[in-house]
């Protein structure tokens, strides 16, 4: 009986990869889907919203100063102390916060994943050096760091990115390093080494894709964290400058008017909280969906 006989198999090759399975599992979780939809709606609103409203974010409307929210005259969210439409400003703030959060997360992903994967895979002295660097950065007091940078370079959005990005990648690096150390021992990585595949190729082809599960989950949790950082900085006056508004600065302005015009605080704060909650729930649902233990 010859062994090398082609084995019959059902015809259509299905691309039932592990990502597809995870996507399907995510779809089964209502919370995750709801949050995804809400976030998508918020993002869409942030982009489109300013075009719907008759007002813009900068022009003060002297006839309607500190007007409460209402459906008359187009100031749906009311106006602020300078008569600027709060709806448009809130959406602007939403857009800026989202942008900063996403961009900063993307940067920290890039740096953190590369750093951690390399350190974890190469190991030894290189790993020790790389992770000690991370430890040192970890122990920097974030706020002092930002203040010093602001004093040295003045306030600017770029500075904001640098400051937030500098902090965001650290935990990502640690997580990925842990994953890389485990993956290093897996047989398919050893097979790749034995075949002569170069280190960068192994890290890129094997380590990173297999470590992506926790990375994605952590990324969805990093976005709200970084948005909060930015909001905090803006709240303190160190972040986004006038006339640009971020949710943080809007909250700061609203807090000053809290007793007389509560909507100036509540509406931007509400938008911020809604966004953060959605990201966190989504991250949770993603973790369940990507958990390799719940396979099959």
């Amino acid at each position: 009986m010859s062994d090398v006989a082609a084995l019959a198999l059902p015809e259509a090759p299905s691309r039932r990869g592990l990502w597809f399975d995870a996507w399907r599992r995510l779809g089964q979780r209502r919370t995750g889907i709801v949050c995804l939809v809400v976030l998508a709606a918020l993002a869409a609103l942030a982009i489109v919203g300013p075009f719907i409203s008759p007002y813009d974010a900068d022009t003060p409307d002297w006839r309607a100063v500190a007007v409460p929210p209402g459906l008359t005259d187009g100031h749906w969210f009311g106006t602020d102390r300078l008569g600027r439409d709060l709806f448009v400003r809130t959406l602007d703030g939403l857009r800026i916060s989202l942008l900063i959060g996403l961009a900063a997360t993307a940067i920290s992903l890039l740096i953190g994943v590369t750093w951690g994967a390399l350190a974890g895979f190469v190991g030894g002295r290189t790993d020790a050096l790389m992770m000690r660097f991370v430890d040192i950065l970890y122990s920097l007091p974030f706020l002092f760091f930002v203040i010093v940078l602001t004093v040295l370079f003045g306030r600017s959005p770029i500075l904001l990115f640098v400051a937030i990005g500098a902090v965001g990648w650290l935990t990502m690096a640690r997580i990925v390093r842990g994953q890389a150390m485990v993956l290093r021992r897996r047989e398919f990585v050893e097979a790749a080494i034995a075949m002569g595949v170069s280190t960068p190729a192994i890290v890129w082809r094997h380590i990173v894709p297999n470590a992506l599960g926790p990375v994605i989950i952590y990324a969805t949790l990093t976005i709200p964290q970084l948005i909060l950082y930015e909001s905090f900085l803006s709240f303190l006056g160190l972040g986004v400058q006038e006339p640009l508004a971020s949710l943080g600065s809007l909250v700061a302005q609203g807090a000053a008017e809290m007793e007389s015009a509560p909507w100036m605080l509540l509406l931007p704060a509400g938008a911020l909280v809604l966004m953060l909650v959605c990201f966190n729930f989504l991250g949770d649902a993603l973790r369940d969906a990507l958990d390799p233990q719940s396979h099959g």
């Binding site: 990869g17 592990l18 047989e187 398919f188 050893e190 034995a194 082809r205 094997h206 894709p209």
Partner: peptide, 20 residues
């Protein structure tokens, strides 16, 4: 040289990258 010396490991499932 490694091109000429190829491995076959014990556990077939873990010697193949599950994501490829």
């Amino acid at each position: 040289t490694r091109r000429e010396l190829q491995p076959v490991f014990q556990d077939p499932r873990s010697s193949l990258d599950p994501r490829m």
